[in-house]
Amino acid sequence: MTGDVGQACWRWWRKLTDVNSGRMRADLARLRRAEGSVAALGVAAVHDLHHGLRGAGHDLRREPDRLALIALALAQVRTSTRLPAARAMGQGDPPALSEIRFTTLIRAHEPEALITPLRRALRGFGQGADVARLATDLRWWSEATRARWCFEYYGAGAAAPEPDTTPEETEA
């Protein structure tokens, strides 16, 4: 039985954003500036995240781009809220994230292609998101996850498909 990806990532994020930890603050700054997956994998905190995920039964050694994506995205989040990231992106008039940028984000299938639009999006709405849910969504990023994000962006989250949480439901 595997543990909860979201909770493992939330615990890691709490440590990463702890203002009293000098090393983690430095790692957080490096992740916020990292230019992609390889740069992120050169940050010690990402390996702390991997250790926590492995402890929860989610070994991402064969998916280093996915591990980097999760770390890079969570490093952009300043406040953990209960609001799904896609909903936060769609709030406001005009929305916090434009429809064009949201469409670019939602069309990304692979972790490396998702990094840049996701980081821009997370910066664009005040950097608050549900950390555990965001991490889970990124771990199991699939057609169903992207469809649910579309419903949430447009404020129709109650009609959205259920979140993916198993490897069988992800795309190759």
Score class of each variant (00 low, 15 high):
Met1Gln: 13
Thr2Lys: 13
Gly3Thr: 05
Gly3Asn: 06
Val5Pro: 14
Gly6Gln: 03
Gly6Cys: 07
Gln7Thr: 13
Ala8Ile: 04
Cys9Pro: 01
Arg11Trp: 04
Lys15Asn: 11
Leu16Pro: 13
Asn20Phe: 06
Ser21Asp: 15
Gly22Ala: 13
Met24Cys: 09
Met24Asn: 15
Ala26Ile: 10
Asp27Ile: 04
Leu28Gln: 15
Ala29Gly: 12
Arg30Val: 03
Arg30Ala: 15
Arg32Asn: 10
Arg32Thr: 04
Arg32Phe: 02
Arg33Ser: 12
Arg33Leu: 12
Ala34Asn: 13
Gly36Asp: 11
Ser37Thr: 15
Val38Asn: 13
Val38Glu: 15
Ala39Lys: 14
Leu41Trp: 10
Val46Gln: 12
His47Ser: 08
His50Thr: 03
Leu53Lys: 12
Arg54Gln: 10
Gly55Glu: 04
Gly55Ile: 01
Gly55Thr: 07
Ala56Val: 02
Ala56Thr: 02
His58Met: 03
His58Ser: 05
His58Ile: 02
Asp59Glu: 09
Leu60Tyr: 07
Leu60Gln: 09
Leu60Asn: 03
Leu60Gly: 03
Glu63Ile: 00
Glu63Ala: 03
Arg66Ile: 00
Arg66Leu: 03
Leu69Tyr: 06
Ile70Cys: 01
Leu72Gly: 05
Ala75Thr: 06
Gln76Gly: 00
Val77Cys: 02
Arg78Glu: 11
Ser80Ala: 01
Ser80Cys: 05
Thr81Asn: 01
Leu83Phe: 00
Pro84Asn: 01
Pro84Tyr: 00
Pro84Met: 00
Ala85Val: 11
Arg87Asn: 07
Ala88Leu: 04
Met89Tyr: 09
Met89Arg: 11
Met89Leu: 08
Gly92Ser: 06
Gly92Glu: 11
Asp93Trp: 10
Pro95Glu: 04
Ala96Ile: 09
Ala96Arg: 15
Leu97Tyr: 11
Ser98Leu: 10
Thr103Ile: 09
Thr104Tyr: 12
Thr104Met: 12
Ile106Lys: 15
Glu110Phe: 02
Pro111Ala: 00
Leu114Val: 06
Ile115Lys: 08
Pro117Cys: 01
Ala121Met: 09
Leu122Asp: 02
Leu122Lys: 12
Gly124Ser: 12
Phe125Glu: 04
Gly126Ser: 03
Gly126Arg: 10
Gln127Met: 01
Gly128Cys: 04
Ala129Gln: 05
Asp130Ala: 03
Val131Gly: 02
Val131Tyr: 06
Ala132Gly: 09
Ala132Thr: 03
Leu134Phe: 03
Ala135Asp: 07
Asp137Ile: 01
Leu138Ile: 09
Arg139Met: 10
Ala144Pro: 14
Arg146Leu: 04
Ala147Lys: 15
Ala147His: 14
Arg148Gln: 08
Cys150Val: 14
Phe151Asp: 06
Tyr153Phe: 12
Tyr153Val: 07
Gly155Phe: 08
Gly157Lys: 10
Ala158Gly: 06
Ala159His: 12
Ala160Phe: 05
Ala160Glu: 07
Glu162Leu: 09
Pro163Leu: 00
Asp164Met: 05
Thr166Gly: 14
Thr166Cys: 08
Glu169Ala: 11
Glu171Asn: 13
Ala172Asp: 14
